[in-house]
């Protein structure tokens, strides 16, 4: 029995053919970006959907099986996936995608992170020592990450380096044009005060010049409580917000309650690719986010 198992171990490990660059993306936004850059040269597996809270994912067997086969793992980083990714990496038996290897790419390493806490204490909730990890909602960050990711993909798969660079050039060109358009369209959003469910939109608000005046969660990662929601209502008198934002994966109850009490619109944002029917890709994500915000402010 034992001999048989060992024979299996070594028999099956030999001759695993390598075709395209196999990419394991923890979140849909970076999976979508890798697809834009890599086109038909890459095979992208996205571990989560827009309807799943990226902080709270199980280290499912299917994730281990996919991570085992990846050449490149793209994480959001800044501890967003700390509850499951370290385990998936270690148990995948895949040396190429361990932290510190070229096959491990964390998007948050390549942008200026906001909300880096001065003190790290869980009394402040589930804070991320490395700053807010939801970096993709500033389209300028998408470009920065794209440039770094292209370099990484070229490094791992030299044969297709030119294709990746061409893919990135094409994407960046379209993205610049789109960014100009979004900025023009979003002009009325400048300075608009909003409430958010969780601090998932810091980068979006920062980019559009909007103001976050409160979160429905009393502390990051702690579910909204009735006491805290009431205190937000009181604050509404002194510092009124114009709308309340939530991501597709967050429960609608708390923002609907606030909306009902104050008359401000509760706005669902896709948060990532796939969060709404319109957010089919990265362009759709920002198109739809801007449109929904504009609708909310009207």
């Amino acid at each position: 029995m034992k001999h048989f198992i060992f024979a299996c171990f070594f028999g099956l490990t030999v001759g695993t053919a390598q075709a395209d660059l196999k990419i394991f993306a923890t979140v849909p936004e970076w999976g979508a970006l890798a697809q834009e850059i890599g086109g038909s040269k890459v095979q992208v597996y996205t571990a989560t959907t827009a309807f799943q809270d990226p902080h709270r994912i199980d280290a499912k067997p299917s994730l281990l099986a996919r991570a085992r086969q990846a050449n490149l793992l793209i994480a959001a980083g800044a501890d967003l996936e700390i509850g499951w990714l370290p385990l998936v990496l270690r148990d995948s038996g895949n040396a190429a995608i361990q932290t510190g290897q070229p096959g491990y790419f964390a998007a948050a390493d390549f942008v200026n992170r906001l909300e880096v806490p001065a003190t790290v204490d869980r009394a402040h909730g589930d804070v991320h020592a490395a700053g807010n990890p939801h970096t993709h909602l500033d389209p300028r960050n998408v470009l920065k990450v794209g440039a770094a990711l292209t370099a990484r993909m070229a490094e791992l798969d030299g044969a297709n380096a030119a294709a990746y660079q061409a893919g990135y050039q094409a994407f960046a060109g379209k993205w610049q044009t789109a960014m100009t358009r979004w900025q023009k369209e979003a002009a009325p959003l400048q300075g608009v005060p909003v409430l958010v469910h969780h601090a998932s939109f810091v980068y979006l608000l920062n980019w559009l010049g909007m103001k976050e005046v409160g979160t429905l969660e009393p502390k990051p990662g702690i579910e909204p409580t009735s006491g805290h929601l009431s205190s937000l209502l009181t604050r509404q008198q002194s510092a009124p917000a114009k709308m309340v934002l939530r991501a597709a994966y967050q429960q609608e109850g708390p923002s609907q309650w606030i909306a009902g009490k104050t008359g401000m619109p509760a706005v669902l944002l896709p948060y990532t690719v796939g969060g709404t029917a319109e957010a089919k890709d990265l362009f759709g994500l920002f198109d739809d986010s801007v449109q929904r915000l504009l609708k909310g402010v009207r």
Partner: peptide
């Protein structure tokens, strides 16, 4: 970034890690 977006084929800027 806008320069790299121009049609002239150019390598993307070297990434600077913000660790």
């Amino acid at each position: 970034e806008s320069r790299t977006a121009s049609p002239a084929k150019q390598a993307p800027p070297a990434p600077v890690e913000n660790r």
